[in-house]
């Protein structure tokens, strides 16, 4: 039986954001914007969804009078991503090929 893929992660921008956050200790909003090549509004919307699911932590501060948003992946987010990747591997029969 195939497990259903996590609907929160199964969207292009959210999956890209989570993939980036796994490779960095924390990311700045503008860097995520550059890497995902989406609009500011869409990225904010997708981050809100990830935040509501508890997958990311968002820290909003000011530096030199400019707003600064720092995003971290949470432990819940890391686990969800691992499960998501395992499920993809199962769908694509990658586990059997590697063992």
């Amino acid at each position: 039986m195939f497990n259903e893929l996590d609907p929160i992660l199964n969207s292009p921008v959210r999956l890209a954001v989570m993939s980036i956050l796994l490779t960095v200790k924390h990311a700045q909003f503008n860097d995520l914007l550059k890497e995902t090549q989406t609009t500011q509004g869409n990225l904010s919307h997708q981050l809100k969804k990830l935040h509501e699911a508890g997958y990311v932590q968002i820290q909003k501060t000011f530096k030199n009078n400019y707003p600064l948003t720092i995003i971290h992946i949470s432990e819940t987010g890391k686990k969800a991503f691992e499960v998501y990747v395992e499920n993809i591997k199962t769908y694509l029969h990658l586990n059997e090929n590697n063992t």
Binding site: L5, S11, A16, S19, I20, T23, V24, E35, I88, Y91
Partner: peptide
């Protein structure tokens, strides 16, 4: 929202991980 197939998901993860700059 665009719903991804497992192939598309894997492609996104591979692309992002390979292209994300590590020397920010």
């Amino acid at each position: 929202e665009t719903i991804l197939t497992p192939h598309e998901s894997l492609a996104i993860i591979q692309k992002v991980v390979n292209s994300t700059r590590q020397d920010y």
